[in-house]
Design a protein around this nucleic acid. Sequence first.
RNA 1: CGGGACGUAGCGCAGCCCGGUAGCGCACCUGAAUGGGGUUCAGGGGGUCGCGGGUUCAAAUCCCGCCGUCCCGACCA
Length: 489
Amino acid sequence: MADDKKLTTRAADFSAWYNEVVLRSELADYSPVRGCMVIRPNGYGIWERMQRQLDDMFKATGHQNAYFPLLIPESFLQKEAEHVEGFAPEAAVVTHGGGKKLDEPLIIRPTSETIIYSMFAKWVQSYRDLPLLINQWANVVRWEMRTRLFLRTTEFLWQEGHTAHVTHDEAEEEARKMLGVYRDFMEGYIAMPVVTGQKTEAEKFAGALRTYSCEAMMQDNKALQAGTSHNLGQNFAKAFELKFQSESGSTEFAWNTSWGVSTRMVGGLVMTHGDDNGLRVPPLLAPIELVIVPIYKTDEERAAVLEAAQRIVRSLTEWAGRGTERIRVHIDSREGIKPGAKYYEWELRGIPLRLELGPRDLASNQGVLVRRDTRVKRPISLGTIGEDVSDTLSVMQRDMLAAALDRREANSVRERISYDHFRQLMDGQGGFVYAGWCGDPACESQIKEDTKATIRCLPDEEFRSADAPTSCLKCGRGATSEALWAKAY
RNA sequence: CGGGACGUAGCGCAGCCCGGUAGCGCACCUGAAUGGGGUUCAGGGGGUCGCGGGUUCAAAUCCCGCCGUCCCGACCA
């Protein structure tokens, strides 16, 4: 496994620290193909748990899974003007098949609006066929200039929801509802607090009427767009003739939404919770919640400790205090590796809890439980280990969210500051700045040019300042809205 | 695509300036001891020196070309 004993510290260089944690905790590796990563079992285990939870949430809100083709005819992409402009530059194109040049090139999907709405058009005739609520788990390809493990890879795994509705308001409600589902998941499972809000015209999805997003703050104070939800209006319905007959007999175009989250969330997890000892995985997403490290000298002790460890595993997996969701536990019984080396290894991989178990413990029917987030050690009785472990995991899940929230608020600026002060801030420590905006795209792009900061979103009411800003951060004219400014990934 | 750095064992690097038997640390394999926070000793395996060409008696080293990676910009879930 890892060769160097210590991790580069975050303070020195966040990027180097991030890459090192991802590689050394065995979440992912570089692949032979430019910009594509290999997701290793440790990373895929976390993604799998994210998938399972989100999938349950999508089903609970009435959605069904389906699957659409990887290859999309080039002409499909061109049917929606803004969409092709946004995605053509980063398209990967298949030009040959069966040894012959294709009449029409095929695009490897960068997103599936076009192919999906072309099918929706066949499936929908009447208002009675609506709403149509579909989700797809898939891989997509976007040929980005620069890539970064999990955050921006050429190929990535994601989920894209696509729906069709009778009215604008119903589509709007759907887009909003799914944004809320994302927020619940990110805060409840990744323990990563987010600010929700609407994207500006400059930042919205190519082809959307309106885009909403979840914005999280990483430990270097930069923003990560962790999920988006779009009200597509009738743009794609018109491009693909997705029409239906209304109750009154008229022919109408449907209203669509699309929404997605990706393997980028794994990167967000690392940059939200990692520390100088490696990764920290929130318990609800950890493939293994508790690792037992046996300690022994003699063969007899080894036999006794391993036997006790197996008893604990049985009692934990049979413990029904969490209903059908059993505690995920692993015994590290590898020989020839000292316990201390195992501690470091499991800490690097971010496993939430460790149980140290040796002859001294067995004598008193206890073990030493160590939390990954705080690294605090505590003796626990083996008699009530199910309750104890389960409770500790719940506390950790809450504590990790609270810590991330505290950090975000400590690095957010809500006082009205001058543009000079803002530039200084963005040049130095960064962070989230809430400030007025006149609504003029010229101010928006000038600020981006000056500072590299962008409007992450126009925050939803819950996140807005108590005293609404009255003037624009840049030009001083009257503010039409409050904007969240930050440098972003 | 512009600016910078780099490519030598699985990983991290030295060697290159000044050409002459390819090295070090970690990891890996074998054996013994060790074992409550990164064990120790002994032995061992593993390399087309990114690729192609040139100069030379001789190239990891000098010259030319190409490819790739990373960092900084423009693009982005």
